[in-house]
């Protein structure tokens, strides 16, 4: 089936199998490998991206459901080579180690700050509880989001 979507500001039209997950489409067809796959049950959040202004796990959508969608992935978050404050925050506060969960964690944080520009510690933990990080113990991720909130 043919599907057209705008990803990080550029329009892409592709032929995809109807069963293709959005995350597979991004990774395999559009070569946007910054979005990761960590599980097969929509539990880990590594594939979180922004579709039409909402953070979603891109393994829960079919590519064909996203015809006409406006999508932002981790590759589209920085503008003009300047890191987004959330990206800066993760670096500043050591909010990542292996980096595998990081793109999804950053996109989920983006959603949180859109809705709540000044979240508390507890609100951040609640908002990110759909994203696994096995490396950091989350403390520095919370600090990274707080840093981003203060520096946005």
């Amino acid at each position: 089936m043919q599907v057209t979507m705008t990803v990080n500001g550029a329009s892409f039209t592709s032929d995809v199998e109807s069963r293709t997950l959005l995350v597979q489409h991004l990774r395999d067809n559009l070569n946007l490998t910054g979005t990761h796959v960590g599980c097969d049950t929509s539990s880990c959040g590594a594939c979180t991206i922004v579709v039409n202004g909402e953070a979603v796990k891109s393994c829960t959508l079919l590519a064909v459901q996203c015809n006409g969608a406006e999508i932002t992935t981790i590759e589209g978050l920085a503008s003009n080579n300047a890191l987004h404050p959330i990206q800066e925050g993760f670096r500043e506060k050591h909010g990542l180690q292996c980096g595998f969960c990081t793109p999804g964690m950053i996109m989920a944080s983006w959603q949180l700050l859109e809705r709540n520009p000044n979240p508390s510690d507890g609100e951040i933990r609640h908002a990110l509880e759909g994203n696994f990080c096995r490396c950091t113990g989350y403390d520095n991720i919370v600090k990274a989001v707080q840093w981003a909130a203060q520096n946005s």
Binding site: T33, G34, H36, V37, I74, F90, E92, H94, C98
Partner: peptide, 21 residues
């Protein structure tokens, strides 16, 4: 010192094995 590797990991430009084609 802030980590050197974080630029690629925060921008989705790391290269894990499954990213290689």
């Amino acid at each position: 010192v802030k980590r050197v590797e974080d630029r690629r990991f925060t921008t989705g430009t790391g290269q894990y094995t499954d990213d290689i084609v």
